[in-house]
Computed example of a mutant assay.
Amino acid sequence: MNKPVILFSTILCILFTSLAVIQAQENEEQYAIIAEYTFDEKNVDSAIDLLLELQALTLENEEGCIIYDVLLSEEDRRKIFVYECYENEAAFKIHTNSIYFKTIVSAKLTPLVKDSKKTKVIPLNNSGNIGNEET
């Protein structure tokens, strides 16, 4: 083979590979969870402070975070919900690997948690998701 053909083939391979990577990134779904925490009454105020600190740091430092809401249950003041939505699972992993996450959640919040539950959810109001199909 001559050099121009090899060069052209190489460029095409690089171009198609790049397009495939871009397509995969664009099609990657948002990653959302709802975490439910239960605390002893005496620990609720401390837990709220920690979660609000984590919320501020997350929203300030993580471009991949779309939503980070901390919610107190109206029915049971010992329960706190956190709704988190990220551009993709990789952005969520960046969040959970951050130093402030490890410091706040692992070192300070976890010892206060009496019970917890995490549920992965699908945002329905974004294009390409199940609930946004036109009829």
Rank of each mutant, 00 (worst) to 15 (best):
Y83A: 02
I33W: 01
S127W: 15
F81C: 02
E89M: 12
L109H: 01
K118A: 15
R77N: 14
I122A: 09
L7W: 08
I22D: 00
A32Q: 00
C13H: 04
I130S: 11
L109W: 02
A24V: 06
E28A: 12
N132H: 15
K118W: 08
I48M: 14
L7T: 14
M1C: 09
I66F: 08
L124T: 13
Y68N: 11
L50Y: 06
E63Q: 12
Q55N: 03
A35K: 10
E63L: 09
Q30Y: 12
E41H: 02
L7N: 09
V121E: 06
N2Q: 15
N132A: 15
E60I: 01
I14Q: 02
F81G: 00
Y68I: 08
T96P: 04
T38L: 08
I11D: 03
A35E: 03
F92R: 06
S73K: 06
Y68M: 14
S106V: 13
T38E: 11
L54K: 00
L71T: 10
A90N: 11
L54F: 07
N129H: 15
E75L: 13
I33E: 12
N129R: 14
N61I: 03
V44H: 00
V82C: 10
I22M: 02
I122R: 03
A107H: 10
L7H: 11
Y83K: 01
V70S: 14
E87H: 04
S116H: 11
E53S: 10
E28W: 04
L52W: 06
A47C: 07
L12D: 05
E63P: 04
S18Y: 09
H95Y: 09
K108S: 09
A35V: 15
N27P: 01
S18Q: 07
R78N: 15
A47Q: 01
D69W: 05
T17M: 10
L15W: 08
A47P: 01
D45E: 07
I99M: 12
V105W: 00
P4R: 04
H95P: 04
Y86G: 00
R77M: 11
A35W: 03
N97M: 09
D76K: 11
V70Q: 08
D76H: 05
A90K: 06
N125M: 11
L71Q: 15
E29M: 02
S106H: 10
I94Q: 14
N88V: 08
D76L: 08
D115K: 14
A56F: 08
D49T: 11
T119D: 09
A91D: 05
T10Q: 11
E134N: 14
V44F: 02
Y37S: 02
T38I: 09
Q30M: 04
L71K: 08
K118C: 11
S106N: 14
A91Y: 00
N126G: 09
T17S: 15
Y83R: 02
L15R: 01
F92W: 03
